[in-house]
Computed example of a mutant assay.
Amino acid sequence: MIGTMEYADILDHSEIVSNMVLKSDVMESYQDARKALNENAEAQKLITAFNDIKEQHEEVQRFGRYHPDYNEIMKKVRSTKREMDMNEKVAEFKIAERNLQKMLDEISEYIAFSVNNDIKAPKDGAALTDVGCGHGGKCGCSAS
């Protein structure tokens, strides 16, 4: 019965933490930036253009440099992405997204390390990439 009560207590505390995250300034900034991005016609046009060229890029990638349109598509991908990234609303959203990810990583790290310092925790958005173990390179991996 103790295990069940401890489990219920952990769930209650996790709900409190999640509500704190949802009510945080960082989450509010993220939601505002996302709304502004979704409502901005120019940003949506750039995102659509990038997604379209990305599909062509995936087709070209199947054949690599041997595809006849490889160089042209690669240039278009880079220029379209740069144009999209330079849009003010896209840039604001990416900053807000990074800030939210950083906060979530810090919370995860704090929880993991409060249990044991050897527990792997996301670091610098590592949860979204395949880089390192989550210890920030302390173990000798390539996370740093």
Results as ranks from 00 to 15, higher is better:
residue 76 K to E: 12
residue 53 I to S: 03
residue 132 G to Y: 04
residue 60 V to P: 05
residue 66 Y to D: 13
residue 35 K to L: 11
residue 41 A to G: 00
residue 132 G to F: 03
residue 40 N to Y: 06
residue 99 N to D: 09
residue 120 K to E: 13
residue 99 N to K: 13
residue 19 N to G: 08
residue 11 L to Q: 12
residue 128 L to M: 08
residue 96 A to V: 11
residue 72 E to Q: 13
residue 72 E to G: 01
residue 45 K to S: 12
residue 114 S to V: 01
residue 89 K to R: 11
residue 70 Y to H: 15
residue 113 F to H: 13
residue 109 E to Q: 13
residue 4 T to R: 05
residue 96 A to P: 08
residue 71 N to F: 02
residue 51 N to Y: 08
residue 33 A to K: 00
residue 137 G to H: 05
residue 46 L to S: 02
residue 140 G to Q: 05
residue 22 L to N: 14
residue 144 S to W: 01
residue 16 I to F: 09
residue 11 L to N: 07
residue 125 G to E: 09
residue 120 K to L: 14
residue 26 V to Q: 07
residue 28 E to H: 11
residue 78 R to G: 01
residue 56 Q to W: 06
residue 55 E to D: 14
residue 49 A to S: 12
residue 55 E to K: 15
residue 101 Q to C: 04
residue 90 V to W: 03
residue 84 M to L: 09
residue 138 K to G: 00
residue 90 V to I: 14
residue 64 G to K: 02
residue 129 T to A: 05
residue 59 E to P: 03
residue 107 I to Y: 02
residue 45 K to V: 04
residue 74 M to A: 02
residue 75 K to P: 00
residue 30 Y to L: 03
residue 51 N to S: 13
residue 81 K to M: 15
residue 91 A to E: 12
residue 105 D to G: 05
residue 9 D to K: 08
residue 36 A to W: 02
residue 30 Y to Q: 00
residue 126 A to N: 13
residue 47 I to H: 06
residue 17 V to N: 00
residue 7 Y to L: 13
residue 1 M to N: 11
residue 116 N to I: 03
residue 16 I to S: 07
residue 97 E to W: 03
residue 109 E to Y: 05
residue 90 V to K: 04
residue 14 S to A: 14
residue 109 E to F: 05
residue 76 K to W: 00
residue 40 N to Q: 08
residue 111 I to N: 04
residue 94 K to W: 10
residue 143 A to K: 05
residue 13 H to Q: 15
residue 8 A to K: 15
residue 124 D to K: 14
residue 126 A to T: 10
residue 99 N to Q: 12
residue 87 N to Q: 07
residue 68 P to A: 09
residue 81 K to I: 07
residue 132 G to T: 06
residue 135 H to Q: 11
residue 132 G to N: 04
residue 92 E to Y: 03
residue 99 N to E: 12
residue 66 Y to P: 00
residue 58 E to K: 11
residue 97 E to Y: 11
residue 57 H to P: 02
residue 131 V to I: 15
residue 81 K to L: 15
residue 52 D to I: 13
residue 8 A to Y: 10
residue 133 C to D: 07
residue 18 S to G: 01
residue 107 I to Q: 04
residue 82 R to D: 11
residue 81 K to Q: 15
residue 3 G to V: 01
residue 15 E to N: 15
residue 113 F to I: 04
residue 37 L to R: 04
residue 62 R to A: 14
residue 143 A to H: 12
residue 103 M to F: 02
residue 58 E to Y: 10
residue 22 L to Q: 08
residue 42 E to C: 02
residue 50 F to P: 02
residue 92 E to L: 11
residue 119 I to T: 09
residue 61 Q to I: 03
residue 133 C to V: 08
residue 96 A to Y: 09
residue 140 G to C: 09
residue 61 Q to S: 15
residue 12 D to K: 05
residue 64 G to P: 07
residue 4 T to M: 04
residue 32 D to A: 06
residue 4 T to Q: 06
residue 59 E to Y: 10
residue 4 T to V: 04
residue 26 V to S: 06
residue 144 S to R: 06
residue 46 L to R: 04
residue 22 L to H: 09
residue 7 Y to N: 09
residue 82 R to M: 08
residue 43 A to L: 03
residue 131 V to N: 10
residue 89 K to H: 14
residue 109 E to N: 08
residue 44 Q to E: 13
residue 112 A to N: 07
residue 30 Y to H: 01
residue 141 C to W: 01
